[in-house]
Amino acid sequence: MQIILLGYMASGKSTIGKQVSKKLCMNFIDLDDYISERENMSVSEIFKIKGEIYFRRIENTYLQEILSFEEGFVLSLGGGTPCYANNMELINSSKAKSIYIKASIKTLVTRIIEEKSKRPLVANLENEKITEFVAKHLFERRFFYEQASITLNTDNKTLDEILLELENKLD
């Protein structure tokens, strides 16, 4: 089985992905970490040195590479991955199950503010501006996220409840 988790930053893709991969005894792959490893620099450095266009091109290349793997995996995408190139088309035409990890703007903003320093897109924004930023981004990206084969709403749920619901939806 191959599982792809997509959704906005701080939606819980990595947290959920690591738990699901443990439970199913499969490899967990974070696409941003995979890219960093292959390119020998962080995603922030790639953006700064080579630019977003370069990043989006290699992101698509590495996504295709991972989708060609024969073994099972749980893949966590970057928040923007589904929105560029033909990435959603690739995902939906693969044998993987795509899952939109959905959270409300309020939930996302709360989580983002808690870990703001680790989020280059918002690190320099004042907290009051983050809600507007997230709402605008989510509006632009929702079209792509909603193309996933499964939607999993994580608002007001514990990790255990989310994992149980996901398990039921995968059966």
Rank of each mutant, 00 (worst) to 15 (best):
S104Y: 06
G51M: 10
C83K: 04
F28T: 07
Y8H: 04
E167Q: 14
I49P: 01
G12P: 05
R38I: 01
I113Q: 08
M41K: 15
R111C: 01
K169E: 15
E167Y: 13
K18F: 01
T154S: 00
Q64R: 11
T154Q: 04
S94L: 11
V122R: 09
F143D: 09
D32N: 07
L6A: 07
I46Q: 01
N127P: 06
Y145V: 07
S94T: 11
R142M: 12
V74S: 02
F47I: 07
D155L: 03
F144T: 02
S36C: 11
F133R: 10
F28D: 01
K97T: 15
N27G: 05
L63R: 01
S149R: 11
M9R: 05
N156M: 02
Y100T: 06
E140I: 14
A123Y: 04
E65M: 00
V109F: 02
T81R: 03
A10Y: 08
F139W: 07
V122C: 11
D33N: 10
E114T: 10
R142E: 15
N127C: 09
S21R: 01
Q147E: 14
M41E: 10
M88W: 11
L163D: 02
S11N: 08
I29M: 09
Y84F: 15
N153T: 06
E146T: 13
S36M: 08
R56I: 03
K18T: 04
Y100L: 09
I35D: 06
A96Q: 07
D32K: 05
R141A: 09
E140Y: 07
I91S: 13
S149I: 13
L125D: 07
E140N: 13
R142W: 10
I49F: 06
N153V: 11
L6E: 10
Y84N: 02
E167C: 09
G78L: 11
L31W: 03
S76R: 00
E37K: 14
S117P: 01
I4R: 04
S94Y: 12
S76E: 06
S21H: 05
E71H: 15
N168A: 15
G12Q: 03
R56D: 02
N124K: 14
E115K: 15
I150N: 08
L63H: 00
Y145P: 05
K136C: 11
D171A: 15
K157F: 04
R56M: 06
G79D: 03
F55T: 04
E146L: 12
Q147M: 09
A103Q: 06
N156Q: 12
L138K: 13
R141H: 11
F143A: 10
F55K: 03
L5E: 03
F139K: 14
S104A: 06
E167R: 12
I101Y: 00
R38S: 11
H137C: 12
S44K: 13
L170Y: 10
